[in-house]
Amino acid sequence: MPNTSHTRSASRDPRARRTRALLRAAVLELSMERDLDGIAMSDIAERAEVNRATVYLHYKDREDLLLDATESTMEGIVDAASACRLLADTHTLSDAPPVHLVNLFTLVDRHRAIYRRMLGENGSSRFASRLEQLLAQAWFEQLLTEAVPGSLDETALLLRAHFLSGALVSVISQWTGGRLDRTENEEHDAVSIERIAQATWSLIRRGA
């Protein structure tokens, strides 16, 4: 998360908020152009059109900035996930993945470098936990509204939401890390957005 010693004291300062927004946008833009290992704090400062010292006034290091910046990428992903309705009767769910799930993986793919880094072997446990919690909360709230009156078991619904969100985070990690891709005769076969959405939806329907 952001360096709270600076961000809390500056939270009411419009200039500080604008600077942090510029820095978050800069690191997300750069992540779409190159691997994260090739992004230095000086690159971020240059893209945001601030000096390097200013970056360190708001974030202690690149990982700190990435955690803050990626919070914004999670919002669309969580909204897309919560739009995929989970019902007790899985037979009423369509075999085809909902457009919202395709949108979810499209959003992930847009920031693939960040998700590959954050959910990778040497990634951020805080990032993974935050994403899982947000997804679980969204699905739990949806399941509460879908539950049949008089048969509500909040503990079971919460476990179900965490089961599905944990599985989805794992799928995102494997997909963005290229561990689901096939390499045969030196030809790289990457798993497409449509294919990963279909496979994930099949698993969600079984566990929904």
Rank of each mutant, 00 (worst) to 15 (best):
R206I: 10
L66Q: 09
T54H: 05
H6Q: 14
L164C: 09
N122L: 08
G207E: 02
L168R: 05
A138V: 02
G120E: 02
D79F: 00
D89A: 09
T73Q: 03
K60Y: 05
A208R: 01
L86K: 01
L168C: 06
V108R: 11
V169T: 14
T4M: 13
L157V: 11
S72R: 13
T92I: 12
R52L: 12
E132K: 15
A208V: 04
G166D: 06
P14E: 00
M118T: 05
Y115E: 03
E154Y: 03
S124L: 02
D95W: 03
R110M: 12
R205E: 02
L28Y: 07
V191A: 03
N3I: 02
A16M: 08
R24T: 08
G123H: 10
N51V: 11
R47I: 00
G123M: 07
R182K: 09
S11N: 04
L159P: 00
V148R: 14
A10S: 13
E132G: 11
M32Y: 00
D79S: 12
R206G: 15
D35L: 09
L143N: 05
S170D: 14
R110T: 15
E29R: 15
I114H: 08
T145V: 13
A167T: 09
Q142P: 05
R62N: 04
S11Q: 12
E121Q: 12
H58M: 07
H162P: 02
R18S: 12
A69K: 09
Y115K: 03
D68G: 05
P149Y: 09
I77M: 15
L93R: 13
R206N: 10
A48Y: 05
R18Y: 06
E154M: 13
L87Y: 12
V99H: 11
I44M: 05
L104K: 04
I196C: 06
S11M: 10
N122C: 03
A113M: 08
N122V: 01
L180P: 01
L30G: 07
T106I: 07
G166E: 06
Q174H: 13
S124M: 06
N51Q: 06
V148P: 09
G38L: 06
M41N: 14
Q198W: 01
D181K: 00
R15F: 08
E46I: 02
L23A: 04
Q137N: 13
L57G: 08
G207W: 08
D153C: 08
P97C: 01
L158S: 14
T70G: 10
D64R: 02
L107R: 15
Q142W: 03
I39F: 04
G177D: 06
S129Q: 14
L135I: 14
N185I: 00
E146N: 08
E75P: 00
G177T: 02
